[in-house]
Amino acid sequence: MFEARLVEGSLLKKVMESIKDLLNEASWDCSGNGMCLQAMDSSHVALVSLMLKSDGFENYRCDRSISLGINLASMSKILKCASNDDIITIRAEDDADAITFMFESPKQDRVSDYEMKLMNLDTEHLGIPDTEYACVIKMPSGEFSRICRDLSVLGDSVIICCTKDGVRFSAKGDLGNGNIKLAQSANVDKEEEAVVVDMREAVTLTFSLRYLNFFTKAAPLSSQVSLSMSEDVPLMVEYKINDKEGDSKGYVRYYLAPKIED
């Protein structure tokens, strides 16, 4: 038996919005540690690695590890039937061919449940080694969304150049070119508004803006995003999943393969 109850159900709705445009289907691997999902997009350019920690749920029961194969568009549609302030419970029997979602209103005067068929998925996992990245850039998630959106006007790719002076995002195309430079924040009252660069080595890499724009769908989960880069390895973009109190409930990480010279 698997059962997980999340009082701040809107977090699960936001998690689904952050992955449904990138992935068609994926397995939720449920264990005593929590619910994990790792899947690549169909072209194998980007990967999502997502964790919802068991102690982030108000109730969490997982008698034995199970893998729930899910059509993510279907799950997203069902979660749209939950109100933003609903409590969401996910339930699946061992060896079941369906998963149940229960939505309770805060006053418990409206309870709905939806059963969804599970899929048999042949999932392919990638081993991602723990990496010491040459640069880790932390910035407001809204700022990163804006940069990716604005530079998409100019081209398909962004060059991210991280040096000790700050970070420069550049794009060029038929109509011209654009650059956005962010300096490290000197004094910031609010931590979530800071730009912080932790750099061991300067790095310049090129990435597809189309995929970065998919990743920014996770911005509602977190006020900050971190970009971790090293030469000639995929970019890692991480949004921490925090509840209203700011406690960590897990993360959404995206990996994106760089573009290289032909």
Partner: peptide
């Protein structure tokens, strides 16, 4: 520029 894929960097498990 050429788009690489993740399997050029990470091994399948």
């Amino acid at each position: 520029m050429e788009q690489t894929v993740l399997t050029q960097f990470y091994l399948r498990q």
